[in-house]
Write a protein that binds this DNA or RNA. Structure first.
Lengths: 184, 184
DNA sequence: AATAACATGTAAACGGTTACATGATTCG
DNA sequence: CGAATCATGTAACCGTTTACATGTTATT
């Protein structure tokens, strides 16, 4: 699996960026397939720097050490090589961890209201994601990125359609069977 | 997020099981939204036992300590209560980590053959998943589990359709732009 | 007798989250 | 002047993977 270090190298191939900017990019543009917290990001950048795959123009050297805390990272020639090797090795892998599906697997233990709330919650998440996806400037993007967004939109639409179509059916069915264990 | 301990409690609600059986169930029946290795599972079961949420009939007590190594776990009354509380708290959350989508985000660094291989790989994975999903005995399942499987099938179909439909388009487009950096 | 599948467990390392701690800059 | 946002980093903890270590049972 592609780790955060490799993702950072890849993003830095597009141009120099600070840790803060990388964080923002990952958690907005890459949100649908990757996230990263600061606590994960800064150590990852530190390791990349130690390996000389990136360099930073930290203001830690000369006189005005205090002024700007911003530290911009640039990928090295070696970093680009390492990234290319990593990305070439990448296989089509994905891993989904879903509390939504897990909850349904154990739906017998849930009251009908909770089932309804889960479906509503999932629909809301899908809608939020959808809004973000369609607002991406597709026309000014390389073909690969565009493809990823369209793929994600296709899945999002199918999920939404399913929940809108079958959501009410399941709610009715489960409401019937939920009479057994009255809300304790 | 639901952790492995909670998943185990939920599965043990259906009846007593050994660690090995739990491993099997998780990595087949729950595969599309959760996985677990032995190295994660056994410590999780140990913690649950320490908390008295499950008990084991380990053969570690009397005379024939050697014979059957199999250790069957049973959920306690307290365990059921804790599980119900956990599952009620569950929100519709999901987290996808996708090397497939990440690779496309960085597609500029990939040769056309690799792009084709990624799409083929993803289609193969989807097909494998699909085969497993449709072979599930839907008729003998509680409504909730069935719903989860049908939801996953709906998404799987949309993904497959997209890749079959647009896969060749992207390959052609990227092949054009890939002339720049001839395979080093 | 060999092999596959069943079965349990530990230890090191990894990758990540959450919470904490601090401070600068910009905008209203 | 206060709030939001920009900005960097650490430490404790969590859950998991990978590799290791061991042994049994069933099948061929």
């Amino acid at each position: 699996m592609l780790n955060l270090q490799t993702i950072c190298l890849g993003l830095l191939c597009f141009g120099p960026k600070s840790g803060y900017e990388l964080h923002k990019t990952i958690n907005t543009d890459l949100k649908h397939f990757q996230t990263a917290s600061f606590g994960a990001l800064y150590p990852a950048l530190g390791k990349l720097e130690a390996k000389k795959l990136i360099t930073s123009d930290g203001k830690n050297n000369s006189i005005q050490a205090s002024s700007l805390p911003k530290k911009v990272y640039t990928i090295t020639a070696n970093g680009r090589t390492v990234f290319k090797v990593q990305i070439q090795k990448t296989r089509a892998e994905e891993k989904l961890t879903s509390d939504f599906l897990a909850a349904f697997y154990f739906a017998e233990h849930l009251p009908a209201e909770k089932i309804a709330a889960l479906i509503d919650g999932q629909l809301a998440k899908l809608q939020d994601e959808y809004r973000e996806l369609i607002s991406a400037p597709l026309s000014r993007m390389p073909e690969g990125k565009r493809f990823g967004i369209r793929y994600t939109i296709a899945i999002n639409r199918a999920a939404t359609a399913f929940l809108k179509g079958e959501g009410s059916t399941i709610q009715a069915t489960l409401r019937r069977s939920s009479k057994k264990w009255s809300t304790t």
